[in-house]
Computed example of a mutant assay.
Amino acid sequence: MKFNATPLPGAMLVELQPHEDERGFFERIYCEREFAEHGLPGRMVQANVSFTRRAGTLRGMHWQAAPHEEDKLVHCLQGAIWDVIVDIRPGSPTYCRWFGVELGGAGDRMLLVPKGFAHGFVTLTDDASVLYHVSQFHAPGTERGARHDDPAFGIDWPVPIRLIADKDRAWPDFAGNAQERSSA
């Protein structure tokens, strides 16, 4: 694996290095030792998959409230997504800045989303499958969120949003909601 910093401190693009032969390929997507050598989270306790049928579907922007914050390692296994993170760490020099990257398609890379970041994505293709490794066990009731079009972030989505869950459409403004901000 090759680790590349993003413009948001703590977030990393992880490029996979497949070993190919006539049978196909093999690639490591996680190694506790390699992650630790780069100062990244060394413990992932849960793996989840989301499957999205239609291009233009948005999932996010989500994070977990304290003390259940989680690091996420996001890998698009099928199709392609535009993956976006927003730094919502109070006091961070990059507070409310976002970073977006295409995952899947022809690329073989993952995005490490650190604690204190909102995360979401829009599907660029039909039938997109995304694998998440997370550092905390699921804790019902601790999910927080912000709208994908929240003016506090100004995210420039590369495709029109065609489908979004009512829950994700209804999150309050981030800048005007102190409870959401303090839960980050």
Rank of each mutant, 00 (worst) to 15 (best):
E143Q: 12
R144H: 12
G141Q: 08
I81N: 08
I155L: 06
V74E: 02
E70Y: 03
G60M: 09
D156Y: 03
L58C: 09
W157F: 07
G56S: 08
F137G: 11
W157I: 05
Q78P: 08
S129Y: 08
G100N: 11
T125W: 05
H148D: 10
R147G: 15
T123R: 05
G79C: 11
Q64A: 08
R97E: 14
A128G: 07
P90N: 15
I81L: 09
G105D: 10
H148Y: 15
K115S: 12
I161R: 04
V113G: 00
L77Y: 11
E70R: 02
S50T: 15
G107K: 15
A128C: 15
E143N: 13
R109M: 09
Q64P: 06
G105H: 03
D126W: 06
G91D: 15
Y132T: 00
R109S: 03
A139E: 15
D156K: 14
F35R: 03
Q136I: 01
F117G: 01
A80C: 11
A55P: 04
R59W: 14
R54Y: 13
T52G: 00
Q136S: 14
A65E: 14
G154H: 10
E37A: 08
D87N: 13
F137P: 01
T125C: 04
L73H: 00
I155D: 01
W98G: 03
G107W: 12
V113L: 09
E37C: 00
R43E: 12
I161C: 10
Q46P: 02
D149N: 13
F153P: 07
H68W: 11
R43G: 06
P41G: 04
F137Q: 09
V45Y: 00
F121N: 00
Q46W: 01
C96F: 09
R144N: 14
L103T: 02
K115A: 11
D126Y: 12
F153E: 04
A66Y: 15
R162A: 14
M61W: 07
A47P: 00
D83F: 08
D126T: 13
Q64V: 07
V113C: 00
R59E: 07
T57P: 13
H138R: 04
T125L: 05
C96I: 01
F35M: 12
A152R: 10
R59P: 09
H133L: 15
G154C: 02
H119E: 06
R144K: 14
Q64Y: 07
A47K: 04
M61E: 09
M110R: 02
V49C: 03
N48P: 01
D150M: 13
G60Y: 10
R162E: 13
V49S: 05
I88L: 14
G91E: 15
R59H: 06
W82L: 09
G104L: 00
V134Q: 06
D83H: 13
L77C: 09
A36Y: 01
T52W: 00
N48L: 02
G60D: 09
D108W: 05
G141A: 05
G145M: 12
I161N: 07
P93V: 10
G154S: 07
Y132V: 01
G100T: 14
S129G: 11
H62M: 03
H138A: 05
